[in-house]
Amino acid sequence: MLNNRHTFDSQLQELKEKLLKMSGLTEKSLHDSVESLKLLNVEKAEQVIELDNDVDQLEIEIDEYAVKLIATQQPVAKDLRKILTAIKISSDLERIADLSVNIARVTRRIQGQKLVKPLIDIPKMTEVSQKMLRISIDSYINEDISLAKQLESMDDIIDHTYKEILNELIEIMRQDKEAINQSQQLAFVARYLERVADHITNIGESVIYLVTGERKELND
């Protein structure tokens, strides 16, 4: 019995490590996608798009592993929540990586053009998102709810910056018809980043569920 528990614990640890690996890759693809846009580096954008395959593969792996654990160990209470949380977090991470791919596609689309404005707020937004991603995963590893709750106020910053970027871009479009196409693309990027932050707060919510067994909305 004890031995069985020991095996199960190490299986849960393995699940956790797969998830951490996935979060590492997601972090990379989020960072690189905005970097590719900032430098208009198409090569980097292509790498982000390619990296998405690895993230997708890991999501499938995590799902299958989780299903196997549920089927063979029939976990209850917190153990069950641990597995469910892993599935949910991996799906959020996968979405974040997808959104990064979308940003990389924007780089590909506007290649050869000059940026209508130097990118300042978008990298700032990315920086906050990256920090949020770190905090959400930290809260998962340490099962620390107070960390997860920090995400709420950070998400507010993201929403605020998002609105500011939109207003600025609309102003640019109004003044310069030539810039409409690219401004629209940049608005998409801001939107993608706003969605990224939402997925990260979802991770925070999952952690709260894992620890307390209760649901709490972090973004409203």
Partner: peptide, 10 residues
């Protein structure tokens, strides 16, 4: 900590 937990770098 296990190395992946600490480095967070796949």
């Amino acid at each position: 900590k296990r190395h992946i937990e600490a480095t967070r770098h796949s």
